[in-house]
Amino acid sequence: MNLQKQIYIRKSCRDYLDETIDMDLIHNFMESVNPLIDEINYHYEILTRDEVNVRNRWSAPYYLAVYSEKKENYLMNVGFIFQQLCLYLQSRGIGTCWVGLDVPKNKTSEFVIPISFGRSDDITRELSKFKRKELSEISDFEDEKLIPAQLAPSAINSQPWYFKHVNDGFDVYQVKQNILKRQIIEKLNMIDMGIALAHMYLSNMDTFEFKIKTSFDDLKGYTYIGSIKI
């Protein structure tokens, strides 16, 4: 299964067909998905539109409610795991969108975020249609190896990732948002970081490694979140 090519065509889907889906597609894929951090337990449930408090002007026939232990870096782990699922579903003609506002009607304390999904005729776009920062803006110098991360989706397209080259890969940082944005998207940006790392993993599956170092450079305006080798 090659999900790398889906990175270059995916778009967040908000226009769905009212068609049924074989949910075994999701269950079977999730049995073999790779987490970023093994020690964090997580689970999900599949909901219909009627089981969700929809706060957007659009809705989907189905929602994946994501739950996790609230351990360190759990949000990044959620983004890493479930972006792999999003790309897989897209490869099967199913659109997805990370949704920050909607919540299950019967959510528990471990609820993190929902992902809307459903059949759609509007799940891809041309590479030229992506509105993203330049590679030179997300790294200490322009590097085409970072294109998969560059194309990752993020809350209000904030693109909070920054990569610093080191001898064996990259130290990864998150942009410190201003006070106003921090109140709105701080939690979502940690999920976004996991999504970007999932893109890097899927593009370098044989060599990708993630670790959190105790020694790293402090960069003004950024928070260190981990290091990758690709």
Rank of each mutant, 00 (worst) to 15 (best):
Pro104Leu: 09
Leu127Asn: 02
Arg125Cys: 13
Glu110Val: 03
Asn106Met: 07
Ser136Gly: 05
Glu137Met: 04
Lys107Pro: 01
Leu127Val: 08
Glu126Pro: 02
Ser128Thr: 13
Trp98Lys: 03
Arg132Glu: 04
Glu134Thr: 09
Ile94Tyr: 02
Ser136Lys: 13
Asp122Ser: 13
Trp98Pro: 01
Leu127Pro: 01
Ile94Thr: 00
Leu127His: 02
Tyr88Glu: 09
Arg119Ile: 10
Gly95Leu: 03
Leu101Ile: 05
Ser109Tyr: 14
Val112Trp: 00
Cys97His: 00
Gly95Ile: 01
Ser120Cys: 07
Gly100Met: 06
Ile113Pro: 03
Lys107Trp: 09
Glu126Phe: 10
Leu101Arg: 11
Leu101Ala: 14
Leu127Ser: 01
Thr96His: 12
Gly93Thr: 07
Phe117Ser: 04
Ser136Ile: 09
Ser136Phe: 08
Gln90Asn: 15
Pro104Met: 06
Glu126Asp: 14
Leu127Met: 09
Pro104Tyr: 02
Ile94Gly: 00
Glu137Cys: 00
Ile115Met: 15
Ile123Ala: 02
Thr124Ser: 14
Asp102Ser: 15
Thr96Ile: 13
Ser116Gly: 14
Phe130Asn: 04
Val103Asp: 04
Asp122Gly: 05
Ser91Gly: 06
Ser136Leu: 06
Leu87Val: 03
Pro114Asn: 10
Val112Met: 00
Glu110Cys: 10
Cys97Glu: 00
Phe130Thr: 00
Ser91His: 07
Phe111Met: 04
Trp98Leu: 08
Pro104Ala: 07
Ser109Leu: 13
Ser116Pro: 07
Gln90His: 10
Arg92Pro: 03
Glu134Lys: 15
Lys129His: 15
Thr96Asn: 13
Pro104Thr: 05
Gly118Asn: 06
Ser136Thr: 04
Lys131His: 14
Ile113Asn: 05
Ile123Val: 07
Pro104Arg: 05
Arg119Pro: 01
Trp98Ile: 04
Asp121Ile: 10
Val103Pro: 00
Thr96Lys: 09
Phe130Cys: 07
Trp98Cys: 03
Thr124Arg: 12
Arg125Ser: 10
Asn106Trp: 07
Thr108Asn: 08
Ser116Asn: 11
Ser120His: 04
Asp102Ala: 13
Glu126Ser: 13
Ile123Trp: 01
Leu87Gly: 02
Ser91Tyr: 11
Ser116Lys: 10
Gly118Cys: 11
Pro114Cys: 12
Ile94Asp: 01
Val112Tyr: 01
Gly100Lys: 02
Ile94Leu: 05
Val99Trp: 01
Asp122Glu: 12
Ser109Gln: 14
Thr96Pro: 12
Thr124Gly: 09
Ser91Cys: 10
Val103Trp: 02
Glu110Ala: 14
Ser116Gln: 11
Asp102Asn: 14
Ser128Phe: 11
Lys107Gly: 05
